[in-house]
């Protein structure tokens, strides 16, 4: 059959494509399917760009309204009272930093040790742990606050930076666990084999090969968790509450006192009818976003150094 057609074509007896207008090969927007294609291309482009408008708006507003009020005084003074001029949010910067640092102390060792277990095991327990970690990532942040309220505030009898740190560490933990497990599993298995082949114990393999090789990836996860925790407000409103004073008083750290944080300060000041407070909220938002971005960028820079499989 097929050869027949070819022969006849060559002989010029019968050309099945004789009636076809080959100008149709040219792209033309007049044809409906091409037009629809082009329109849909444009539509997705427009939607994507539109999705980025809020980002630019937020950044511009932060730089404009926040940048205007930002000064050394704002970074180093205590929050002003109502109708008071000046002031700043120095104690809130300290509070956020201290709470995040304490949360790191809780969540990072916990998370990495769990990740070490997960990366070595494929049993039912590991599966349940992984499932729990994934559940925690989708856990509403306010419920971490409710938990810390129930577990720490009620138990110790008051709002404190410790309660805030506990709430933040619950939010950081799943990110640390899941990214660390990934980082440890990314270590080439032949490196692990080499260590075991030389007679390394499990602990030696982990400490001398797996963790040193995986450390950039683990730190990436930690920085992502820090970025998330630093910006969290909901879990702090009723655990650390707020304070108009420094965390460091009379030569000692008041970890068991209510503590200011940038996020809660923004929340409180945004709702106030005073111009000075609103301006400070914008300036504090700028500082908070910069802190979060720095943590994110540090994480990304580290992830570029992860050894590939």
């Amino acid at each position: 059959m097929a050869t027949n057609v070819v022969e006849r074509n060559l002989a010029g007896v019968e050309d099945p494509f004789a009636g076809v207008d080959f100008s149709h090969l040219e792209r033309s927007l007049r044809r409906p399917r091409t037009l629809i294609d082009a329109l849909l291309n444009l539509a997705t482009a427009a939607l994507t760009m539109l999705a980025l408008v809020p980002l630019f708006s937020v950044v511009v507003m932060l730089l404009w309204r926040g940048g205007k009020r930002l000064s050394i005084a704002a970074l180093t003074s205590l929050p002003p009272g109502p109708l008071e001029a000046g002031g700043g949010f120095g104690n809130a910067i300290v509070g956020t930093t201290v709470m995040v640092a304490v949360a790191i102390l809780f969540s990072v060792p916990f998370g990495i040790l769990t990740a070490v277990y997960l990366a070595q095991s494929n049993n039912k327990v590991a599966e349940v742990v992984r499932f729990c970690a994934k559940l925690l990532t989708g856990f509403p942040s306010i419920l971490a606050g409710v938990f810390a309220y129930g577990a720490v505030v009620l138990a110790t009898g008051g709002f404190s930076s410790l309660a805030g740190a506990v709430a933040l560490s619950v939010l950081m933990l799943p990110t640390v666990i899941l990214t660390s497990e990934d980082a440890i599993r990314m270590v080439p298995s032949r490196m692990k084999e080499a260590a075991i082949g030389m007679g390394a114990t499990t602990a030696q393999t982990v400490w001398m090969v797996l963790l040193p090789t995986a450390i950039p990836g683990i730190l990436t996860g930690v920085m992502l968790a820090v970025a998330r925790a630093a910006g969290e407000t909901a879990p702090l409103i009723f655990t650390a509450l707020f304070s108009n004073y420094w965390l460091w008083q009379h030569g000692q750290m008041k970890l068991m006192q209510p503590t200011a944080s940038l996020a809660v300060l923004i929340y409180n000041f945004a709702g106030m009818p005073f111009k000075n407070q609103v301006e400070l909220a914008w300036a504090a938002a700028l500082v908070l976003v910069l802190m979060v971005l720095c943590a994110n960028l540090a994480g990304q820079a580290l992830s570029a150094r992860q050894v590939q499989r």
Partner: peptide, 20 residues
């Protein structure tokens, strides 16, 4: 087995140096 591997070492098919 850990002790055994210290006395009986191993070199693998693929070169597998550590990232150090």
């Amino acid at each position: 087995p850990v002790a055994v591997r210290r006395f009986i070492g191993m070199v693998f098919q693929q070169p597998n140096p550590f990232a150090t």
